[in-house]
Design a protein around this nucleic acid. Sequence first.
DNA 1: TTCATATATTCGATTTTTCATATATCCTGC
DNA 2: GCAGGATATATGAAAAATCGAATATATGAA
Lengths: 114, 114
Amino acid sequence: MNPVAFFKCLADETRLRSLLLIAHEGELCVCELMEALDQSQPKISRHLAQLRQCELLSDRRQGQWVFYRLNPALPEWARLVMETTLTGNPEFIADNKRALAQMQSRPVRDGHCC
Amino acid sequence: MNPVAFFKCLADETRLRSLLLIAHEGELCVCELMEALDQSQPKISRHLAQLRQCELLSDRRQGQWVFYRLNPALPEWARLVMETTLTGNPEFIADNKRALAQMQSRPVRDGHCC
DNA sequence: TTCATATATTCGATTTTTCATATATCCTGC
DNA sequence: GCAGGATATATGAAAAATCGAATATATGAA
């Protein structure tokens, strides 16, 4: 993982918010990120594709949804950088977390239904 | 310190190398960075000005030289991010450190002469 | 099969970033 | 003050990133 390429990925509002939200929530799909960030579907999708191509995110399809999570193979230092950023700037994604919490009818993950 | 603005600063080869070198060496001037990165003076200078404007670096003039160091007011999380990046990628600036060590007649800091 | 929902991709226009050259400013020694 | 070297800035051209709109693909249900 080239450090410059890594930071280029973080150097965009949409991508950084998506990454930190995913790091915090564990796993999110496109429609959840649309709601949390209040952005169009193509915009979210394009940035996620970029993050997947750089191998920061990995995806898994479940039915009609695609869930994104941090790439398990991510180097330790990269994971630490995101964690440090999140801890040092808790207010940065506060609004996004709130919007996500208020979202109606979020997709149900396998293994989470009753 | 806005996280996105911070990462934009790190998302360039010249700036990231300069930052990490300065973080490692404590203090460097333009001519030392030119030698260490093998880049033109205007290029180095422009990027340093950008880093100073974002308040990642602070400068001090000593005679004809201007020395740059990490801004002492830098938030803890930002300093940690750079440290983590440096520790996790020691080879990234290895060549630059070598070039700097081989540089002839480096400017003498006040208080460092015998 | 057909429809509805979720996600991905392409295209063209706009904005931002980057760079090289040239010019200006500052400092020191004479 | 003046000359020469070191550092800083301005300008315009080239390259890259971003965005919205339109389009395409995939899945599940009827």
